[in-house]
């Protein structure tokens, strides 16, 4: 049987939404899949060497569990985003959830191919020197070259 293939497009750059691409990619690789992730728009934030800048916002996210119910307007107060971010980080640590850096490192070890979208790198003026090593640059056609033969394709 041929190796199965998983193609992922990662478009989000928040602390919470950074998880699905790396969890699925690392697990698929452990199951023997060949995996490629195409990072575009805000997903490019996930490629930076230091991921300490990633945040999670309760603003516009009524589904986010809060310790006490809060009116939507309170979410715009200064410090709310920082509070939500540190709350999520400490909860993840307490529950034995891997850090994004750790999951990404496991993806790198498992030879998950990572491609940064050239157009959005240019658009947002990202410096590719800030990215981890081993990142390739490519466009939509480069994504389809792999995704066209993939068994599973996910847009996250």
């Amino acid at each position: 049987m041929d190796e199965k293939k998983l193609a992922i497009i990662a478009t989000k750059g928040t602390l919470d939404w950074g998880y699905p691409p790396f969890i699925l990619a690392s697990t698929a690789a452990a199951l023997g899949y060949s995996v490629e992730i195409f990072f575009t728009f805000y997903g490019l934030q996930l490629l930076k060497k230091d991921l300490g800048h990633l945040r999670v916002s309760p603003l516009g996210n009524p589904a986010m569990p809060m310790p006490v119910p809060m009116p939507t307007l309170a979410m715009i107060l200064p410090g709310m985003e920082g509070m939500a971010t540190s709350m999520m980080k400490s909860k993840m640590k307490a529950k034995g959830v891997a850090s994004l850096e750790e999951l990404r490192e496991l993806c790198v070890e498992a030879e998950v191919r990572m491609i940064a979208c050239q157009m959005t790198v240019d658009l947002f003026e990202f410096d590719t020197a800030d990215f981890i090593d081993g990142i390739e640059l490519g466009g939509a056609a480069a994504f389809f070259e792999f995704a066209g033969e993939a068994d599973i394709t996910l847009f996250i």
């Binding site: 969890i23 690392s26 697990t27 452990a30 529950k95 034995g96 959830v97 891997a98 999951l103 496991l106």
Partner: peptide
Amino acid sequence: RGLNCPLPILRTK
């Protein structure tokens, strides 16, 4: 022990 998804599987692999 104490590890959450997907770490037990990744470490097992």
